[in-house]
Amino acid sequence: MEELKENLKAAIIEALNLEDVNAADIDDNEPLFGDGLGLDSIDALELIVLLEKNYGVKIENPEDGREVFQSINTIAAYIEKSKK
C-alpha cells in the first residue's frame, strides 16, 4: 500500500504538471481538489485516464471520481479494491 501511494504521488505530479510540488509535500489524507492542491475538472478527467492507463482501473462516470479522488488514501484504496 505504501509503495502504491508513493508511486501514485509521483504519477500525479507528472501527469498534472504540478511544478514545485514534491511527493513528500502531499499528505496521504490531504484533499486533492479545492484548497489542497487546487486541482480542477480537467485534472479530475486526467486522473481518470491515469488510473486506467497505469493501473487498469476504470471510472466510467466522472461523477464517481469525486469520491475516489478525495485524497491519496481514497485513490489507493479504490485501486486496491478494484484489483481484487
Binding site: N17, I42, D43, L45, E46, V49
Partner: peptide, 9 residues
C-alpha cells in the same frame, strides 16, 4: 489508446 484531457483542451 489514452487521449489526455489536459492535452486536448
Amino acid at each position: 489508446y489514452f487521449p489526455s484531457p489536459a492535452v486536448f483542451v
